[in-house]
Design a protein around this nucleic acid. Structure first.
Lengths: 251, 251
DNA sequence: CGCTAGCTTGAAACCGGTCAACTTTTGTGG
DNA sequence: CCACAAAAGTTGACCGGTTTCAAGCTAGCG
């Protein structure tokens, strides 16, 4: 209800852990990016003190709500986060799903408050970065500034992805392919997915009726492209699925 | 063909114009923002040397093309720019229209090349900002960094706007309202619009068939909400138009 | 055991796309 | 200046995919 991204705040054990800067939260996109940039340990430590591990948030718990004052972005460390807004009729528009390693809150910068709600779909833990602090650090560390620009710029392109005029099947395929890639980038199987979200969530994300999502899964299964068992999906014909998604993913 | 955003390059007369930093390209979003931030003249001059006025581009001329190396963002000074991609079937997906004061190229940062084409819809002049240079300056000038973050973050939200599941009439209304606001923010009439783009462009932007755009205009006119005469639109009932657009614009 | 939320399936209505014909405007060259 | 051609825009008829409404199914949980 009050300040967002606050549940279960606990300090990172960074300061105590001087000998090994690589303890630094391994799932955070920043840390990986910064290591690639060849940061030295003192720089990493500087970044590390901005980080706060928060959570766990229980399934259904809100991480922030529309209108909350923006103070921090956060990387998902565990679980899945859904961001959404409610339109005038009370219908939910899902803006995105965020898996471990992905960043929530980037769209809040321009207005200094969150333009959407964020809710945990399962048990969620976050890495919280104070935005004023990270922006100040970015001014000193060009690589970090570049990384932030890059993250923001990526999201512009992503949002345009679903804006097109696509069929229900194409949308479903693109959704599954994107999920598969993100999971495999994190070291998980690219063919076996577990969906943290309901059919209705998927429908609200893809701008379809939940019945259409249901039928879509059935059609994909009948075509021998996936095997669906409730929220567990096995992609049995990745190339055909990719072919269906090609229009949306632009390849 | 070769390097993008290059036509008719001519140096700004900045250096010669020491006495008056406020000659600084008045339509650029940056300059306005920086003035608000209370920049002193030396700072403004520092920003100014990054700026290159380019153009004019003739109607139909490309400013950059998909895949071109990204080196600069640009503010529109005059005219209207359309950005688009071609999908697998060769259909055009319009990503946005950019009026004077608006910035093109922000979505290119993440990949270091332009992910879309940009074409002049009429006679277009630009303010070109070398991105490496402006990023370097942003590190020294916190207000500028903040401004860049803000611009990027805004675009994330905008892109999500049209992603929803809306009717043709709602899309048309939202398109006109957005255009009206952007024009009036620049000091032009909020009720009389001149469209630089064809019906087909609008259709490709709103993800409709051009016939649907045509019918949409007819319906809006029959309802007494607008008066349409080719590309000149008069909004005769702004409140009703706003009501129709409300779902999309979230108010 | 029975409740509830999530999910699936069927039938009908509807919105927008496609195809086609036509009108209007713009631009070009004789 | 006119004639012609090409592009842009409008309108009508039909078709198809999605939504909507409705009914039933399934799994999980008190």
């Amino acid at each position: 209800m009050s300040a967002p991204v606050k549940a279960g705040r606990r300090a990172t054990p960074a300061a105590a852990d001087d000998g090994d800067a690589f303890h630094f939260c391994s799932t955070c996109a920043f840390s990986a990016a910064c290591l690639e940039q060849g940061f030295d340990k003192s720089r990493l430590r500087e970044l590390h003190v901005l980080v706060e591990h928060v959570g766990p948030f229980a399934e259904g718990a809100h991480i922030f709500r529309e209108g909350d004052a923006f103070e921090a972005i956060a990387a998902v460390r565990m679980g899945t986060v859904k961001t959404y807004v409610n339109d005038a009729e009370g219908r939910e528009q899902v803006l995105g799903f965020f898996l471990p390693g992905e960043i929530i809150g980037l769209n809040a910068i321009s207005q200094a408050k969150y333009p959407c709600n964020a809710v945990a779909l399962d048990s969620v833990e976050l890495c919280r970065f104070s935005f004023p602090n990270i922006a100040a650090l970015a001014a000193k560390v060009p690589g970090l500034q570049q990384q932030l620009f890059k993250l923001l710029s990526e999201d512009i392109g992503k949002a345009a992805l679903l804006a097109g005029n696509f069929t229900a099947d194409e949308r479903m395929a693109a959704f599954l392919v994107a999920l598969s890639r993100r999971q495999s980038a994190r070291g998980f199987s690219p063919t076996r997915l577990h969906l943290a979200m309901t059919r209705t969530d998927i429908a609200n994300y893809l701008r379809l009726a939940s019945e259409s999502v249901s039928r879509g899964f059935t059609r994909l299964q009948d075509a021998g492209i996936v095997r669906v068992e409730r929220r567990d999906i096995e992609i049995t014909d990745p190339s055909k699925l990719g072919e269906m998604a090609r229009h949306i993913l632009r390849e």
